[in-house]
Simulated scan of single mutants.
Amino acid sequence: MPPVPASRLRRLVTPVGILAVVVAAFGYVATVDPNEPGHYPVCPLLALTGLYCPGCGGLRSAHAFAHGDIGAAFGANAVAVVGYFLFAVVWVLWMVRAGRGQPLRIGLAPVYWWGIGAALLIFSVVRNLPFGSALAP
């Protein structure tokens, strides 16, 4: 006897739940301004070395993004903004596939993962150099 397929509602619970968590997180960051000191912890790499990691400025970027200021969001952390849009695309793809009863499979070859890592490393190095100060938060 074949297994009974999950109902459409049940298949959509996980992507909708993930979106709810992301919206709640953005809502919190939109409400509690990371530009005011004392609300969030300092980046450990920044505190120990004075260097910006790829995530530095991410909370300020999310705050600006939540308020609709895409320019300020890019200024705080361009990689984070790209990540927000990538999340949106993957989430929509996930919802469509879940609605059809298909699993979400994003199989990237190792070369792509290495490429993403290299891009983040280059972003981190450049934003810490004098000519890359426009990428610093």
Rank of each mutant, 00 (worst) to 15 (best):
V81P: 00
L104C: 03
L59Q: 15
H63K: 03
E36K: 12
R100Y: 02
P34V: 12
R60Q: 15
L46E: 10
F74S: 02
G75T: 07
G58Q: 06
F87Q: 01
W94Q: 01
F87T: 06
D69N: 15
L59P: 02
P41C: 09
R60C: 03
N35Y: 12
R97W: 05
C56S: 03
G58S: 13
A88K: 06
L104G: 01
G58I: 10
A64V: 02
A64R: 08
Q102H: 14
V90K: 05
A72K: 14
G83F: 11
A88V: 12
D69Y: 09
L93A: 14
N77K: 08
P41V: 12
F87N: 04
M95E: 04
G38Y: 05
A72W: 08
H39D: 07
P41A: 12
D33Y: 06
L104A: 03
G55I: 01
A80G: 03
V79P: 01
L46I: 04
C53S: 06
A76D: 11
T49Q: 08
N35L: 13
G101C: 10
N35F: 10
G99Q: 11
A30H: 13
A98E: 03
A73D: 08
T49D: 08
P44L: 08
V92L: 15
E36F: 05
A64N: 06
L93M: 10
I70R: 04
V90L: 15
F87D: 04
V81G: 05
G38K: 11
G101K: 11
G38V: 10
V82E: 06
V82Q: 11
A80I: 01
F74H: 04
A62P: 00
T31R: 14
E36P: 00
F65R: 09
S61I: 06
H63R: 13
V81E: 10
A76L: 00
P54N: 04
A62M: 15
